[in-house]
Each structure stands twice: as structure tokens, then as C-alpha cells.
Amino acid sequence: MPGRLLTRRTTLGTALAAPLVLGACDIDPPARDDASASPTPPPPEDSELVARVVAELVRARSVVDAATSSVPELAGRLAPVASAHAEHLELLVGAVPDAEPPTSPPPTLAPQILRALGAVRRSEARLLREVRTACVGAASGDLARVLAGVAASTAQHAAALDAEVTA
């Protein structure tokens, strides 16, 4: 299989170094062996794109938190979704260590299982749309691959929630 075995550091370092260096952020830039080489033109739009995806992940996380607060027995079912959000956020936010992670006020959800699950399903569907859009628009191919991975994971968790609701 033509998989590209990149570590999380090299992947996002390569994908985001240029735009974030442009933004004066401290991010794992790739080693520059040839100091005389002309820099690759940076794709500055990618740093805004990552910020939008991070904000969307934070929003989706707040919906999961609200669901588990309203219906504590959902905590186990939603734990894999929360875990995926946390890891996706860690990778994307970790690429911008000096950035202030955004916050999102948790919505108020009725303490009913099906309503809470429905809210999470709609939230995950919105997250999937936003991440897909960002993936297609990314200037960096490596960043696009990371975002496609986030989209694929989100689709899996959404499908698992669908199975929970229809079971």
C-alpha cells in the first residue's frame, strides 16, 4: 500500500511550518540543511484554515460535554468520540504552541438520551462537513491528508452513533 509513514511531528511540521513561521509562531519547523536555499513560498491561508478546524473541534467537543452532563449514562457511549476530538485537537493545537486555544460555551441539552444523541450526531455531521471543506482547500498536501484522516474518523464515529440510535 502506498501509505506515507510520517510521524505526527514531521507531518504537521512539514504542512504548517511555512504559514506558522510567517505568523511568528514556534512550531517544529523542518531542518534547513541548506541555508542558502530559497524558502518555499508559504501558504498563509493554511494557518487560518487550521484555526477554523480547531474552533470547530472545540465546538463539537462542547456538544459532547453538554450531552454527557445532561445524560451522564451517555458518558461511556460518547467516550470514543470525546477521545478522538481530544487527539485531533492535540495534534492541530500542538502545532501552534503559542496559540490560545479557543473556547466554546456548551449548549444546553435536554436530559433525554435520544435528544442528546441526536444533538451529538448533528454536531458530528457539521464537523465532518467543515473538516472536508478545509481538507479540499488546504494548500499543503500533508495537511490535507491529516484533515482527511480527521474526516474519516469523524465519519466512523458518526456511523457508530447512528448504529447506537437505530439499534
Binding site: 510521524t7 487527539e87 482527511a148 484522516g149 466512523q156 464515529h157 456511523a159 448504529a163
Partner: peptide
């Protein structure tokens, strides 16, 4: 998503486990 129809489970990094 189709993996779940085939007995798979949701992953954090499907297709890119090294991440």
C-alpha cells in the same frame, strides 16, 4: 464509515495510524 458495516470499530486516525 463502511468499515463499521463489516465489523470494524471507529478509530482516531483511520488510514494514518502513525499520527
Amino acid at each position: 464509515a463502511w468499515q463499521l458495516e463489516l465489523g470494524g470499530t471507529a478509530q482516531t486516525w483511520p488510514g494514518a495510524p502513525e499520527l
